[in-house]
Nucleic acid binder design. Sequence first.
DNA 1: ACCCAGGCGGGCG
DNA 2: CGCCCGCATGGG
Length: 308
Amino acid sequence: MTGAFAEAQLYTIPNVIGLNIRASIESGQPLTFHANYKLDDGTERLDYVTQDGVIRLQRERARPDALLYSFAGNYTRSSARDEIASRFGLSHDMRRIYSRIRTDRFMDNAVSSLYGMRVTENHPWEATLCYLISQFNNIKRIRGIVRGMISRFGDTVEQDGIAFKLFPSPERISKASINELMACGTGFRAKYIKNTARAFSENPGYAGMHGTEYGELKNRLMDLDGVGDKVADCILLFGYRKHMAFPIDVWIKRVVEEVYFDGRKQKISEIHGFADRKWGSYAGYAQQYLFESGRRNRIGVRNDKGHR
DNA sequence: ACCCAGGCGGGCG
DNA sequence: CGCCCGCATGGG
């Protein structure tokens, strides 16, 4: 895909201060599963597809506050810029967010080491498909499955004689057979994916429920096949900009128990209550720093002798 | 061989 | 409600 952009015109988004692209796309968010990131000789390059087209970003070491971009597919110069600005949360008030989540030494450290990492804003269907696949799975394999689904089921777009596969639509996924879905490595999740894709394609309203209140939207999402408490919170946080959502997976559970409860086991409901009291409407941002910091430092992971 | 992975649905008490 | 179990698949 990279070569196709060699002669494409680059546009500029100026005054982007303190965006950590790498941490934002390597921290288990939807772009982790299908974006391509490279750092060569001080230049960062990133490309990813949506249902609408292809986005390519570039940033040079000598101009760290300028995001350069190009696009293909159905994007225009301004719609591509809007996609990038929302995707990377360029309007997020990071000073306020950091002042609310730097509640203790661990969070202070996490913010320092991951400074500039954003909670990205992704399309609801994209987030839903990614986190349906994520359940009882690992990040490397999730990447393979999501990429496989893009190459098998994504619409083809041509630009300057080069073909691209876009992010697959719920319509196309709902029409795939269970066997076709299994062939991508989805395993027991194939039925969830097919049923939930059908729900999205039969009810286009799912794509535009950003205004619905958190609790009500969570209930709606948990009606979908394969969407439980954790996947719903991921969709709310990464797909609907609900920054109070606090997805609790095995990593978050371990980190919270280790850092805040001296290693004592806590119920999921207790951790939800703790996060809500401690970080409130910024809990989702706190979660993202807890998750990535805990994962990088393997907080609470036991070795083969059963010791910590 | 064994363990684990950004969990969930169904069945049971 | 809460708890427990099976679940596809591949990597360490």
